[in-house]
Computed example of a mutant assay.
Amino acid sequence: MNTADMTARIASGKGFIAALDQSGGSTPKALRGYGVLDDEWSGDEEMFGKIHEMRSRVITAPSFANGKVIGAILFERTMDSKVDGKPTADALKDRGVVPFIKVDQGLADEADGVQLMKPLDKLPALLEKSVANGMFGTKMRSVIKSANPAGIAAIVAQQFEVGNQIIDAGLMPMLEPEYDITAEDRAKGEEILKSEIVKHLDALPDGRQIMLKLSIPVTANLYKDLIDHPKVLRVVALSGGYSTEEACAKLEKNHGMIASFSRGLLQDLRADQSDAEFDATLGKAIDSICAASSS
Rank of each mutant, 00 (worst) to 15 (best):
L123V: 07
S243C: 00
M140H: 12
Q158N: 07
L282Q: 10
D5G: 13
E40Q: 11
K14E: 15
L107K: 04
E190V: 00
L123K: 06
L269S: 04
K122D: 14
I197V: 14
G33M: 05
E196A: 09
D84C: 07
L201P: 12
G49A: 11
L127Q: 00
R208H: 08
N164V: 08
E161D: 12
D185R: 02
V232W: 12
N133Y: 07
K29F: 09
W41I: 04
K93M: 11
E40F: 00
K250F: 09
M54P: 00
L265Y: 06
Y223K: 04
V36A: 01
I144L: 03
K129M: 03
D206F: 02
L120K: 09
K188N: 13
R55H: 03
A132V: 01
Q267L: 12
P62Q: 02
K129R: 13
V232E: 09
I144A: 03
D287N: 13
G241P: 11
L265M: 11
R141Y: 14
L238P: 00
G134V: 01
G24Q: 10
R55T: 02
S262K: 00
A147T: 07
N221M: 06
A11Y: 01
G96V: 00
R234I: 09
A65Q: 04
R77A: 15
E196G: 08
D109V: 09
A237W: 07
L116H: 12
E277G: 08
K50M: 13
P230R: 12
L266K: 14
V232H: 12
T138V: 10
Q158E: 12
R95M: 05
I181K: 04
V97M: 10
A89W: 01
F136N: 03
P124T: 07
S293P: 01
G49C: 06
V162K: 02
A11D: 06
M140C: 03
A8H: 13
G189L: 02
A220F: 04
S294H: 03
V58M: 13
Q22A: 05
Q22M: 03
D202Q: 12
I152E: 03
Q209L: 06
R9M: 14
M211T: 08
